[in-house]
Simulated scan of single mutants.
Amino acid sequence: MCTSLTLTSHAEHHFLARTMDFGFQLDGRPVVIPRNYEWKSQQGIQKTKYGFAGTGRNLEEYFLAEGVNEKGFAVAELYFPNEAKYNTTTQKEKVNLAPHEFIMWLLGQIGSISELRERITEINLVEEAIPMLGFIPPLHFIVTDKTGETVVLESDSGEMVVKSNPVGVMTNSPDLSWHLKNLNNYLNIQPTNFPAKKIDEYVIQPFGQGSGTFGLPGGYTSPERFARATFLRALTDTGETVEEGVNAIFKILNNVTIPKGVDIKDDGSSDYTQYRAALDVTELTYYFNPYESPEVFKLTLDETLLAKKEPTEFAYAATFKTTDLNTKNT
Results as ranks from 00 to 15, higher is better:
Val95Ser: 00
Val95Asn: 02
Val95Asp: 01
Val95Lys: 04
Val95Thr: 03
Val95Glu: 00
Asn96Cys: 15
Asn96Glu: 15
Asn96Thr: 15
Asn96Asp: 13
Ala98Ile: 01
Pro99Val: 02
Pro99Gly: 00
Pro99Tyr: 03
Pro99Leu: 01
His100Ala: 01
His100Cys: 01
His100Lys: 00
Glu101Ile: 00
Glu101His: 02
Glu101Phe: 02
Phe102Trp: 10
Phe102Ser: 04
Ile103Phe: 08
Ile103Tyr: 08
Ile103Asp: 05
Met104Cys: 14
Met104Asp: 13
Met104His: 09
Trp105Asp: 10
Trp105Arg: 11
Leu106Glu: 00
Leu106Ser: 00
Leu107Gln: 02
Gly108Met: 03
Gln109Trp: 01
Gln109Leu: 03
Gln109Pro: 02
Gln109Asn: 02
Ile110Asp: 02
Ile110His: 04
Gly111Lys: 12
Gly111Phe: 05
Gly111Ile: 04
Ser112Val: 02
Ser112Cys: 08
Ser112Leu: 05
Ser112His: 09
Ser112Glu: 04
Ile113Asp: 01
Leu116Gly: 10
Leu116Arg: 02
Leu116Ala: 08
Leu116Cys: 10
Leu116Lys: 05
Arg117Ile: 06
Arg117Lys: 14
Glu118Ser: 15
Glu118His: 07
Arg119Ala: 11
Arg119Phe: 13
Arg119Leu: 07
Ile120Asp: 08
Ile120Thr: 06
Ile120Glu: 07
Ile120Ser: 04
Thr121Tyr: 12
Thr121Phe: 11
Thr121Ala: 14
Thr121Val: 08
Glu122Asn: 08
Glu122Cys: 03
Glu122Thr: 06
Ile123Trp: 07
Ile123Thr: 04
Ile123His: 03
Asn124Glu: 09
Asn124Phe: 01
Leu125Val: 05
Glu127Ala: 10
Glu128His: 13
Glu128Asn: 13
Ala129Pro: 06
Ala129Tyr: 05
Ile130Met: 11
Pro131Met: 15
Pro131Arg: 15
Pro131Ile: 14
Phe135Gly: 03
Phe135Ile: 09
Phe135Lys: 03
Ile136Gly: 00
Ile136Ser: 00
Pro137Gln: 09
Pro138Ser: 11
Pro138His: 06
Pro138Gly: 08
Pro138Met: 10
Pro138Arg: 13
Leu139Trp: 14
Leu139Lys: 13
His140Leu: 12
His140Ala: 11
His140Val: 15
Phe141Ala: 11
Phe141Thr: 08
Ile142Ala: 09
Ile142Glu: 13
Val143Trp: 14
Val143Ser: 09
Thr144Phe: 04
Asp145Lys: 06
Asp145Trp: 07
Asp145His: 07
Lys146Leu: 13
Lys146Gly: 15
Thr147Val: 07
Thr147Lys: 11
Thr147His: 12
Gly148Asp: 04
Gly148Thr: 04
Glu149Ile: 01
Glu149Lys: 15
Thr150Lys: 07
Val151Tyr: 13
Val151Leu: 12
Val151Met: 11
Val152His: 08
Val152Pro: 01
Val152Lys: 07
Val152Tyr: 06
Leu153Val: 02
Ser155Lys: 03
Ser155Tyr: 07
Ser155Ile: 12
Asp156Trp: 08
Asp156Pro: 06
Asp156Leu: 05
Asp156Tyr: 06
Asp156Arg: 15
Ser157Lys: 14
Ser157Met: 13
Ser157Gln: 11
Gly158Lys: 14
Gly158Val: 08
Gly158Thr: 13
Gly158Arg: 15
Gly158Pro: 11
Glu159His: 14
Glu159Asn: 14
Met160Asn: 05
